[in-house]
Design a protein around this nucleic acid. Structure first.
Length: 457
RNA sequence: GGCGCGAUAGCAAAGCGGUUAUGCCGCGGCCUGCAAAGCCGUUUAGACCAGUUCGACUCUGGUUCGCGCCUCCA
């Protein structure tokens, strides 16, 4: 029985889908004005893992991850780069697709773009105005009136009084309440804009605010009420709080049953973020580390825990993953159906059902590897590969992982051959010299009963 | 200031009121010509102070420290 930590309830709850056998899940995706960093990688990998486990559990999953392709930063960046917004966003959407594919992330079922739903946004904003939850300000911006929504603060555990007390933002004189947030931004010169009926100095011309995008895309694609909504912890407030306010005021029903928030990636114990400038892009990291190592590194921590990034930790993850691949090397992995009664499989399932406890699930993988090293059983190899596959790991030919792109290095085989001959002639000095030469080139030799193999250091 | 989260061995990271987490590193052994890999064994824990309990790393309270949100942010 799957349990999920629900941010809304602040506890683990048994997962019961709205519709038996089906799960609808929405995750806030990227704003595409730059390359994705490791924080984005974590969101992609974590919710990919979630969707995989849900599918493994027998659910038919509709997974929506949106793309924000209109926003202040995009406009600014496009201007700086002297390219159109469309060129800029497409470039970074392509880059994101490359990065996520590298990380073994299965494409979400649907990846809506904000710009394709502007009409829907205008409709929802109009509904909110009609119902008294929103108003057009003197400057043409449309704001959501937070004091009109009873449950405002229920997700983040904040009260409007506390929020106002801690108010650090310059008060926008056009707002009725400092906590009101923008639904529609009046157009400024040289900015893309859409026509709307909201009035104001420039006759409604403008563009949608960020929060409204997700309310509209989720309800269009998953309905007014759906199962799971995910995203990074930093979106809990205000973004997700605002989504609830918009959607529930519009549809008059609960928006989401389970809210899931993944922890941050940190650098030196500080949150990795664009604003702090301490971020590493996925592609930078992939220059140095195998993408599967990065995925392994992410899944090695619980999704709600902070994850400290450093080369040392990636190196450690690489060694650990090497152990798993080494156990599968030269083994035939039987294409088994997982028997969930099998003790280790049962442990794996219990771990995953317990709020997606991937660290514990991975411990099972290592236990299986140990068993495999002893038994050389094709069944065990099959089970290891199958369970790891649920996490999106260990699906490559072990040699691909262990040897990497070193296989282009010339004459490894010749040197191994020469060493074998030296050994045969009991010329161990020569044999060791060859081994040392290869080691210095980053190649580790391993003598086995079946002959000598190699891997990258 | 308000709200919330965390503190586990050298590093990383889980579960659990009493019994080996797991991976890397270290140490001893087996294996090996020697290594590597693997196997067997093993050293390092639970910030601090109280309390509950037959028994607490695990529950409760407090202290200290760290982090996050309250502003765009995954």
């Amino acid at each position: 029985m799957l349990k999920i930590y629900n941010t809304l309830a602040r506890e683990k709850q048994v997962f019961t889908p709205i519709q038996a056998g089906k799960v609808s899940m929405y995750v806030c995706g990227m704003t595409v004005y730059d390359f994705c960093h490791l924080g984005h990688a974590r969101v992609m990998v974590v919710f990919d893992m979630v969707s995989r486990w849900l599918r493994t559990s027998g659910y038919e999953v509709t997974y929506v991850r949106n793309i924000t392709d209109i926003d202040d930063k995009i406009i600014k960046r496009a201007n700086e780069n002297n390219e159109t917004i469309g060129q800029l966003t497409q470039r970074f959407i392509d880059a994101m697709d490359e990065d996520s594919a590298q990380l073994g992330v299965i494409r979400p079922t649907l990846e809506p773009k904000a710009t394709e739903y502007v009409n829907g946004m205008i409709e929802m904003i109009q509904t909110l105005i009609d119902k008294g939850f929103a108003y057009t300000a003197a400057n043409g911006d449309v704001f959501y009136a937070v004091n009109q929504f009873e449950g405002y603060g229920k997700l983040s555990g904040k009260s409007l009084e506390d929020l106002r007390a801690g108010e650090r933002v310059e008060v926008d004189t056009f707002k009725q309440d400092p906590m009101d947030f923008v639904l529609w931004k009046a157009a400024k010169p040289n900015e893309p804009s859409w026509d709307s009926p909201f009035g104001g100095p420039n006759h409604g011309k403008g563009r949608p605010g960020w929060h409204i995008e997700c309310s509209v895309m989720s309800s269009h694609l998953l309905g007014a009420h759906f199962d799971i909504h995910g995203g990074g912890q930093d979106l809990q407030f205000p973004h997700h709080e605002n989504e609830i306010a918009q959607s529930e005021a519009t549809h008059r029903c609960q928006m989401v049953n389970y809210w899931m928030h993944n922890g941050f990636v940190r650098v030196d114990d500080e949150k990795m973020s664009k604003s702090l400038g301490n971020f590493f892009t996925i592609r930078t990291v992939l220059e140095k580390y195998d993408a599967e190592v990065v995925r392994f590194f992410i899944l090695r921590a619980h999704y709600r825990s902070p994850l400290n990034y450093s080369d040392q930790h990636l190196d450690d993850a690489k060694l650990a993953l090497t152990r798993l691949y080494t156990s599968l090397r030269g083994q035939v992995a039987a294409d088994v159906e997982v028997d969930w009664q099998q003790p280790l499989a049962a442990r794996f399932k219990a771990a995953m059902d317990d709020d997606f406890n991937t660290p514990e699930a991975m411990a099972v993988l290592f236990d299986l590897a140990n068993e495999l090293n002893k038994s050389k059983s094709t069944e065990t190899a099959g089970l290891l590969k199958k369970l790891a596959g649920i996490l999106g790991l260990l699906q490559r030919n072990p040699d691909d992982f262990l040897q990497g792109d070193m296989s282009q290095t010339l004459n490894i085989d010749d040197l191994i051959q020469a060493r074998a001959e030296a050994k045969k002639a009991k010329n161990f000095a020569e044999a060791d010299a060859i081994r040392k030469q290869l080691l210095e080139a980053g190649i580790v030799l391993e003598d086995t009963p079946q002959g000598t193999t190699w891997r990258r250091a």
